[in-house]
Every structure is written in structure tokens, then in C-alpha cells.
């Protein structure tokens, strides 16, 4: 069970194999229990993040936090957004026309 830190300035880690609730993942040496399933390639918070925080990956800004994320929590569409162009999903058109 592991997650990698891509750059020392990052405030997220990338999960290298899918993790399930209860799995322990080491974050800066400390084991943290996962609360949800997180798939390979997805991000988890390195430290607690609050709305308005800039998310840093590869040492560069990749968006902003929109809802609080605890240390180890999945960071994705539910708590983060682009600072450029909004992300769309398969049901985006239906949602915008309904």
C-alpha cells in the first residue's frame, strides 16, 4: 500500500495501487487509515487542506480546494476545481439542460 510524493513542495500524494477503506498508507512516514477506496493514479491529501488552498503536484499549482480534505483523504472532483477551465463529465450536458 503506497502513495508517492512527486515533488517536495507537493501537498498531495499519488496512489500507486488501488487502496480500500481501512488500508494503511504511509504519509511522510506515518501510517494513515484510508476512509474510502482510492484507485491507482488518484490523489490523497498530504496534510489537511481547506477551501481556497492551492493544490500542488509536480511542484506546480494544479487547482484549488473547494471543500475540506483531511490528511489522507481522496482529493478529486468532489473537493477540488480547476483555476482555468471547468472539468466536464459524461452527464455534464444533461445536468446543464435539465
Amino acid at each position: 500500500m503506497s502513495a508517492i510524493l512527486l515533488h517536495p513542495d507537493d501537498n498531495i500524494l499519488v496512489v500507486t495501487a488501488a487502496v480500500a477503506p481501512g488500508d494503511l498508507v504511509a504519509i511522510d512516514g506515518a501510517p494513515i487509515a484510508m476512509r474510502s477506496r482510492v484507485e491507482v493514479g488518484h490523489k490523497i491529501a498530504r496534510a489537511a487542506l481547506v477551501a481556497g488552498d492551492t493544490v500542488i503536484k509536480y511542484g506546480a499549482p494544479i487547482g484549488s480546494i473547494t471543500a475540506p480534505a483531511d490528511r489522507g483523504e481522496h482529493v478529486h472532483l468532489h473537493n477540488m476545481k480547476s483555476d482555468y477551465i471547468a472539468t466536464h463529465m459524461r452527464d455534464t450536458l444533461e445536468r446543464s439542460t435539465s
Partner: peptide, 11 residues
């Protein structure tokens, strides 16, 4: 892209 863990365009 999002299902695979990418959240934003800049990421």
C-alpha cells in the same frame, strides 16, 4: 481522464 484520477485541466 477524471475517472483515472486527473481532476483538472492544469493537472
Amino acid at each position: 481522464n477524471a475517472e483515472g484520477g486527473l481532476t483538472t485541466q492544469e493537472e
